[in-house]
């Protein structure tokens, strides 16, 4: 029964994703081969991969913190990534290659993740941890703003594109880096899927069942930091898709088992990414992707909050 439902849902998802991708690259009328190959296609691919990576990160974080509203953006990990990327850009200039920016962003993300991990030990209450994450994000963003003030005009442009979020201006090389980290993040998450299921039932039960909670959390956060780092370095801080992607996947599949949720989150996250990109382009004047993500995501999040009054 459930298997058949999964097949139908996933087939429908792939079909919708294909439609959205097609719409995204054809919107704006005919374009020459160059525009297609160097602007529209990489942009669409980036939107797809970035959305998928954020949703995959979100589904892991929701499990390890047992909080349906957790994702890298709201818990300050994206801010950490932005700080890492900003510091490198400041120190080494914008000439630096994409890979090193992504790496420093991943290190920044891991730093923020480490703080969250430490805090999660102190704040047993899921809501308080969430507030702590939001605060952490604010503080790190403030530091990034201070860096902005003391930077030259060229870096300032890069900084702005981070805070606003954008899928444009990515090269195939950068898209490949996002794809690479997504593959690595997915591999770690897949390896960890049994642990991600188990830890939902609490640390005590996890230990009693023969698994190590800290190892499950570390693997998940490593996967999240890698992916969030690359996405933030090239697209800026993407919010909300990490929260709603996994929720839509779970609601459609009717299961929380990560064997199904992880791949389905890739699909929903990718779909949301492409839709947000499309939405940012259909408006008369182009909108920043962070705003369209918020437009798509926040109603869903409010719905989740209303349905889960214990939060």
């Amino acid at each position: 029964m459930r298997t058949r439902r999964h097949i139908v849902v996933i087939a429908a998802g792939i079909f919708m994703l294909a439609l959205a991708c097609l719409a995204d690259i054809t919107w704006g009328g005919d374009a020459g081969r160059d525009v297609m190959l160097h602007l529209r296609l990489p942009r669409m691919t980036t939107a797809l991969l970035a959305g998928a990576a954020m949703a995959l990160s979100g589904s892991q974080m929701q499990s390890i913190f047992r909080n349906p509203l957790a994702d890298p953006h709201i818990m300050g990990i994206s801010s950490g990534a932005a700080l890492g990327a900003a510091l490198t850009t400041m120190c080494a200039g914008v000439t630096l290659g994409g890979a090193s920016i992504a790496l420093s962003a991943a290190i920044g993300a891991a730093g923020a993740a480490a703080i969250i991990l430490y805090a999660s030990d102190r704040f047993r209450n899921a809501s308080i941890l969430l507030i702590f994450g939001v605060m952490l994000g604010f503080i790190i963003t403030a530091i990034v703003s201070i860096l902005q003030f003391s930077s030259d005009a060229e870096s300032l442009k890069t900084f702005y594109s981070w805070s606003a979020g954008s899928f444009s201006n990515t090269t195939w090389g950068e898209t490949a880096i996002i794809a690479g980290t997504l593959a690595a993040g997915l591999a770690i998450a897949t390896f960890n899927h049994k642990g991600l299921d188990l830890i939902l039932f609490g640390d005590e039960f996890t230990e009693l069942s023969g698994a190590v909670p800290s190892r499950i959390r570390l693997s998940a956060l490593l996967s999240c930091s890698l992916m969030t780092g690359a996405v933030t370095a090239f697209c800026g801080q993407l919010g909300f898709v990490g929260i709603i992607g996994p929720h839509i996947a779970k609601a459609l599949l009717g299961t929380s088992a990560h064997k199904a949720v992880l791949p389905a989150s890739l699909l929903t996250g990718g779909l949301i990414g492409v839709c947000a990109d499309l939405l940012s382009r259909v408006t008369p004047s182009p909108m920043p992707v962070a705003s369209t993500m918020a437009l798509l995501g926040i109603p869903v999040i409010l719905y989740i909050m209303l349905k889960r009054p214990e939060l």
Partner: peptide
């Protein structure tokens, strides 16, 4: 906790880590 999204059989399998 009775975590939503697991059937009884799935829950048993999860706990048989």
């Amino acid at each position: 906790p009775k975590v939503k999204g697991f059937t009884v059989k799935e829950f048993v399998k999860v706990s048989c880590f």
